[in-house]
Design a protein around this nucleic acid. Structure first.
Lengths: 215, 215
DNA sequence: ACAGAACCGTACGGTACGGTACTGATAGAG
DNA sequence: CTCTATCAGTACCGTACCGTACGGTTCTGT
């Protein structure tokens, strides 16, 4: 838990998880069989059970492994004008859309959602905590950096972030999860990101006077 | 297709679909077996296959049937002041959250998302078209009624509606689909709806002068 | 009353998968 | 060289489920 999941895995195990992810992306949960993973990764089923316990353990390891790839934004305290802050927000928005619309993210979210009804399975919690948690933290740091410099105003950081998220993503994530064809037009992500950030500034942007004070 | 799905179904068949929905809600897709549905609904498997073709046909019928329950808003041209329009929007927002957070909606969305990877299955498309289509149409009618009366302004109705949706739902739908505990606090839906509508007015509300002109 | 259809309950074939056990190969240590 | 630990590959078992078939029962129209 405390140490990164990657350090607990040998390179061989990581390669196996990569193969499992490819399988999941290609064919959904039905294709994620223990025999199929073993065959695709050229390892024995016995090793799978030795390393990951059971099929649920394998799926959990896949989620944790994939989440460990996500890297975030950290406020380095460097000077940043309003242009750069806006560009950072736009970059975050586009990254968010591209992550959510990525093959592996969609496949893992579908997997976790499909398992959400089973009471004993905690894949959903795991995905939210490991995957989304990092993105959220990154975005919160970015918002806080903008607030400290007077570009935006809010009292509740969580509220502001969720609004930003809603303005960027809207119902696109669920539509992509449902497999709607028109939802994954990645070439439109930039325009969607720009509009979302504009609307966010309209709601949370500091006024001219306040901006002038801090400038 | 053209006629409502309810008319194509006998009361017996609707009762069977209700039982199947209960089963799905209780235990997820794993619990939705043909034998289980037959046992729960006190009908034979043979009848299931006679009525719905196969298991996929049964699931599609469940989605269409559930979608046929949704009723929408129709602009009757009645006089409506700004207060009533705002109340209508709030009602829509809260209804939306309650529908999306309902047991049966979550179960069916999980089912459709779980099947989304299978190429030949079109449950996702069906759910979007049948279920969400009605909600969208209702909301668009409501927004257009408000625009005609000068309470809100927009050029792209679709864009405005998607913004409203994003401000209301944010990432709540996916979090509920993933089974996150804190996401389904239904007692907070009213507050969420109010905040979303307020922010929507901040973005799309007509200005005082324009409102005065049309009053 | 009676024929035919619809239907319930159950049983069965075929298939697929999760998990376990076994065998042989390989590589490093002493 | 030998011993040991690890792992790939395979065979196997129990279970679950889809789809079909069949006997018996209820409903319906004449």
């Amino acid at each position: 838990m405390t140490e990164p999941e990657q350090d607990r895995l040998t390179p061989r195990q990581r390669a196996v998880l990569e193969c499992a992810l490819e399988l999941l992306v290609a064919g959904g949960e039905r294709a994620l069989t223990t025999a199929g993973v073993a065959r695709a990764a050229s390892c024995s089923k016995e090793s799978l059970y030795k390393w990951f316990g059971d099929r649920d353990g394998l799926m959990a390891a896949m989620i944790a492994y994939q989440a460990s790839k996500v890297r975030g934004f950290a406020d380095d305290g460097a000077p940043m004008d309003r242009e750069r802050f806006c560009a950072h927000l736009m970059g975050f928005a586009q990254d968010l859309l591209e992550v959510l619309g990525g093959d592996q993210s969609l496949a893992l979210n579908r997997l976790a959602i499909g398992q959400a009804s089973r009471e004993q399975s905690r894949l959903g919690q795991l995905l939210v905590a490991q995957g989304r948690g990092r993105i959220d933290q990154s975005a919160r740091a970015l918002l806080e950096a903008g607030r400290k410099r007077g570009f935006i105003r809010y009292t509740d950081a969580d509220e502001a972030y969720r609004t930003l998220y809603g303005l960027i993503v809207r119902d696109l994530h669920v539509r992509m999860l449902l497999g709607e064809e028109g939802a994954r037009r990645t070439e439109k992500f930039a325009a969607l990101a720009e509009r979302g950030v504009e609307q966010f500034f309209a709601l949370y942007g500091a006024r001219q006077k306040e901006r002038a004070e801090t400038a």
